[in-house]
Amino acid sequence: MARGLSARALPVEPLWFEWAALVGAFAFSAWLLGVRGVWALLLRSDPTGITLVILVVFVVATLWSGSRSRELTRQRRALEQAAAGGSAAMLRDESWAAEYWAALAASPRDAGAPLDLLLERTHGPHSTAWWVNGIQLKLGLLGKVIGFSILALQIGEMQNFDASQSQDLLRSLTTGLGVALLTTMVGLVGNILLGLQLTRLDRFADELVAQAQRHGLRLVPVSTGSQG
């Protein structure tokens, strides 16, 4: 019956290919915005450079998400192959599931410590990535504060109002307002798009842990029995 369950193991979701397709959509959108002159407008309208920092953080975090999705897919595929074969020995030494099952076999009465190790491998780096995702939003809010501060300083420097200088005055006032709005918008968009990738990674990692526990209940008793 256990062999029958392993034979019906679900296929591994193509997480890395999903990420590649998403990045392809990002690249096309970035190219289209560049053709329309949006990037030049954003960078030119933000003298503080916060918009550029947010974009760099987003690109680096997106590339990390791709590397992470590839590693999670590799770990899940190795787990499914071992589960289909019905033996934990089929896993390579660098497999997280192999370490989890070996720890269970060494101390079958204490399943908490091996599970904590597995969770650290599958979910640990994501906490830092979520922190980086929040940085984008905080940088956008920082740009908003700086922009309104510039706007307030420019208004405070006004001593009299001359109708002939209204155009120059309006241009100087909109500089601070543009910084406030553009940095906030870029931070929000980056936070949403990176959060979408990290949410998918977390969901895939949850499924990886669930599969390792499910197959571990079947494989570990066999391995411990053979050792006895």
Rank of each mutant, 00 (worst) to 15 (best):
M1A: 01
M1E: 04
A2G: 08
L5T: 04
L5M: 08
A7P: 05
R8G: 01
R8E: 11
R8L: 15
A9G: 04
L10I: 09
L10S: 14
V12N: 09
L15M: 13
W16S: 15
E18S: 11
E18C: 06
E18Q: 14
W19N: 01
A21Q: 15
G24H: 08
A25S: 03
A27T: 00
A27W: 09
A30E: 11
W31C: 12
L33K: 09
L33N: 05
V38R: 05
L41D: 11
L41I: 02
R44C: 06
S45I: 04
P47F: 03
T48M: 10
T48D: 06
G49M: 04
L52K: 07
I54P: 00
I54R: 06
V56L: 12
V57M: 02
V57Q: 03
V60E: 05
T62Q: 02
W64Q: 12
S69E: 02
L72R: 05
L72S: 05
R74M: 00
Q75R: 03
Q75F: 05
E80D: 07
A83S: 13
A84N: 03
G85T: 05
G86P: 02
A88P: 06
L91V: 06
D93V: 12
D93K: 15
A97M: 00
A97K: 03
E99M: 07
E99F: 04
E99P: 00
Y100C: 06
A103W: 02
A105I: 00
S107W: 00
A111T: 13
P114F: 04
D116G: 13
L117H: 13
E120L: 15
P125Q: 01
T128G: 14
A129Y: 10
W130N: 10
W130D: 12
W131H: 10
G134Y: 02
L137H: 05
K138G: 11
K138E: 01
L139C: 11
G140E: 10
G140C: 12
G143T: 11
K144A: 14
K144V: 07
V145G: 02
V145W: 10
I146W: 12
I146L: 14
G147D: 07
S149Q: 14
S149T: 14
I150D: 07
L153T: 06
L153W: 02
L153Q: 10
Q154H: 10
I155K: 06
Q159V: 07
F161K: 09
D162W: 04
S164D: 12
S166Q: 11
R171W: 01
S172D: 06
V179P: 00
A180K: 11
L181F: 12
V186I: 13
G187W: 00
V189Q: 01
V189I: 15
G190K: 00
N191Q: 08
L193N: 03
G195Q: 09
L196S: 13
Q197W: 08
Q197N: 15
T199R: 13
R200F: 05
R200L: 15
L201E: 01
L201Y: 02
D202I: 06
D202P: 03
D202V: 00
R203C: 05
R203Q: 01
R203N: 01
R203V: 04
D206H: 06
E207A: 15
V209E: 05
Q211I: 00
Q213R: 14
H215W: 15
G216C: 07
G216F: 02
L217E: 09
R218E: 13
R218F: 10
P221E: 05
T224L: 09
T224S: 08
G225S: 11
S226L: 14
Q227W: 14
G228K: 11
